[in-house]
């Protein structure tokens, strides 16, 4: 069997890890939001696409390289997230989970269709990075390697921020116990805005990374948000580290299913994984037991 040769397996593994790092960046942000405000942000993948289209516009109008546009796009989406929280999400925090689910669903519908009005339903791509790195026998595509490594770096960076800085600790405190945090003098409302801004910025960065690998259109979000759900349910809702491992796992599973069966089935891998996990553990593997 050709497929079982170690080079091929290694190739699949590396491809999976790199793709998984991008998923992890996206899903960790989603879980950060869930942890701090118990809101499932159904518009998370659309925030990512804002990043992708931002990079697209900057590239095609100003000729800015996607990696450079990170420096503009990510802060911009931080503010988008910050004000979304201030004016919209803040109103549904603490209300029944379905309320926030429906509100962010509405937001996602609006963003998708604004995207369609602005950019049409054609697939877009950014031909900025091409070719492959060759390491011995292994060929790793440059865009994938770059996107995967930057995603990994950003995720680890945010993790370190949460672990080490005062602000990061305040965010974790709110995530664990908002009332206690409030008593300890933390401005919970401010923390929520910062958190949503940060998670949105992570999604935006993921979008820029996405734009160098794949072609995309305003409706691309559905696939990603579903994968993210699979990831956060596998990793535990609200659990940052869990989402990281979940993302990596999904990337690797998809790569192997794609390699051994077909790429179309790789698309279904997330759903199969999701369904399996939900059936074994109706409330997810870790994290909050009931909504």
């Amino acid at each position: 069997m050709e497929l079982l040769e170690p080079e091929i397996l290694l190739q699949l593994l590396i491809g999976g890890l790199l793709a998984g790092a991008l998923y992890a960046l996206l899903a960790c942000g989603l879980n950060l939001i869930f942890g701090v405000m118990r809101v499932i942000n159904l518009a998370h993948a659309e925030l990512m696409l804002i990043g992708a289209f931002g990079a697209y516009v900057l590239f095609h109008i100003f000729g800015l390289h996607p990696l450079a546009s990170l420096l503009i796009v990510v802060p911009a989406i931080f503010f988008v997230g910050y004000y979304l929280q201030r004016f919209l999400i803040e109103r549904v925090v603490g209300r029944p989970m379905l309320t926030s689910l429906l509100a962010t669903y509405g937001l996602s519908i609006i963003l998708i269709n604004l995207g369609l009005l602005l950019f049409s339903a054609d697939f877009k791509s950014i031909p900025a990075l091409q070719g492959s790195f060759l390491i011995d026998e292994l060929a790793v595509s440059k865009p994938r390697a770059t996107a995967g490594l930057i995603s990994l770096l950003l995720t680890v960076g945010v993790y370190q921020f949460l672990e080490r800085t005062r602000l990061g600790k305040a965010i974790r405190a709110v995530s664990e116990h908002a009332q206690v945090a409030a008593i300890c003098g933390i401005d919970v409302r401010q923390i929520r805005m910062l958190t949503f801004g940060m998670a949105a910025a992570m999604a935006g960065a993921a979008g820029v990374m996405l734009s160098v690998i794949y072609s995309f259109w305003p409706g691309s979000g559905v696939d990603f948000i579903q994968k993210c759900f699979a990831i956060i349910i596998i990793g535990g809702m609200g659990n940052f580290v869990g989402a990281f491992y979940g993302g990596i796992l999904l990337g690797v599973v998809e790569a192997f299913v794609g390699g051994f069966i077909s790429t179309q089935w790789a698309e279904a891998a997330a759903y199969l994984l999701l369904v399996t996990v939900l059936l074994i553990r109706p409330t997810g593997l870790k994290g909050v037991a009931r909504a």
């Binding site: 989970m97 349910i233 999701l274």
Partner: peptide
Amino acid sequence: FLTLRLRGPYFAIAMLGLNEVGRIVATL
């Protein structure tokens, strides 16, 4: 029997997935 064991958002998300599974099956 399978999906209704899930509560709240889990059910909503599982159903979203079901629709996508339908689309994938119809395609494949």
